[in-house]
Simulated assay, not measured.
Amino acid sequence: MYKPLSQFLVILFLFIGTIGCNKQKNKIFYDSFSTNISLLGETMKTDSVMLRYPFRVRHQDSLAVIMDLHHPEYFYHAFTYPHFRPLFSFGKRGQAPNEILSAENFRLINGRMWGLDANKHLITNISMQDMCHPENAKETQLDKEIIRALDFTLYDDSCFIIPDYSGKYRFHVIDKNGNIRSSHGKIPTFKRKNENIALAQAWRSFIDYNPNNQTLAMVTQLGEVLEIYNLKDSTHIVKIGPHGEPEFNESGDMAIPSGIMGFSDIQVTDKYIYTVFHGRSFKEIAQQQQPIIDGGQYIYIFSLKGEPLYKYTLDHYIYGIDVNEKTREIYALDVNSNQPIVNFKLKH
């Protein structure tokens, strides 16, 4: 039957639009890595310091710091780098002034250490030479509109980037006084329409920023989603792996995880984006027999454009990493061991 030209054009445009959407989705989703490598680690001896749940590790020059979430007295422990000989512990746990209620993350930049205390709703910074004297730390109280900050990174020396947990945005830029200077992005979900606190909780992400290439990258704690923001040209890249978006059940304003444990750390270098990936379902984790294994067995490496390049399968289960591309090695934290610091030599 003859159809008017206008109707034919509408159908043609819809067809072209569908092809365009499919091409866009094909760019977003990935299912494999270019290279798969098995990697054996070397355990570092740290007998004089009992780390309970080491979560983050970073170094600058000859000093390394490990953040321990469950240590009964201190959140932070200083070591020599790269030999990891213990020096001292600091960041006393407690409610008093100059003590820490909850350590979420920390950064070592330009001779200073910056730390985030979510319960006290503030960021502190102190000279790395003065870390045993918390009374000399400077505090930045965060804007009351920020919902419980769970990660942060420095941006342009005097500002911070903090993920948003209201569901309205993806992250905030915070000025040196702790006030929201600007808010950016949306949660890139294909499955949920309601942008609320529960969705933001499920999409909790770990972040890192590299000022040399102005790249901000985020990975989800649940599911398998990587986001890359180039803060120079405002481009945004989303990459979703085989495990898909974070899965959860909504109960009021709470997100109850129901899918997999995803990423647990990320580092943006001048060349690549390094991530720690778990990939185990909560059902599998709950049904484990003794001894319980915690952490991720994979290091995923992406290009700065989000292309999946290298998948390392490790002989340890880890949480935090510190990448040194100059020496081509990664120091990682194995929470299952009494000797949790592991050295891996890169092979790519």
Score class of each variant (00 low, 15 high):
G17H: 01
D175H: 07
R112Y: 08
N230P: 07
P4N: 13
E42R: 13
I180E: 01
L222E: 13
E325I: 03
D294R: 09
I237C: 08
T35Y: 13
A137S: 15
G115K: 08
A118K: 06
S38I: 06
H243W: 13
S32M: 02
I301E: 05
D322Y: 12
Y331I: 04
N343C: 14
A332P: 10
F171Y: 15
Q201M: 02
V268R: 14
H59Q: 06
P257F: 00
L142V: 04
I293P: 02
P340R: 13
A118Q: 05
Q24L: 15
Y229R: 14
E135G: 03
K25S: 08
A137I: 03
F344A: 04
F88Q: 05
G20I: 12
I16C: 11
L142R: 12
D164S: 00
I11S: 14
M261H: 11
V323Y: 09
Y74E: 03
I228E: 11
I146K: 00
S89R: 14
N212R: 11
V238C: 09
L231P: 04
H121P: 03
F344P: 02
H243A: 10
L63M: 11
D270E: 13
S102F: 05
R148P: 00
S182G: 15
P4Q: 04
I299A: 14
G41F: 09
D265F: 10
F206V: 07
D322G: 12
H71T: 08
R192D: 06
H83G: 08
L12A: 10
Y298T: 15
A202I: 05
V49F: 15
M131L: 08
R56F: 06
Y209E: 00
A286I: 04
M1A: 08
F79D: 01
K138C: 06
R58Y: 10
L226I: 01
I187K: 02
A118N: 05
F33T: 11
I321Q: 04
R58D: 04
P163M: 00
I237S: 06
K326S: 08
V238Y: 05
M50W: 03
F152Q: 01
E325R: 09
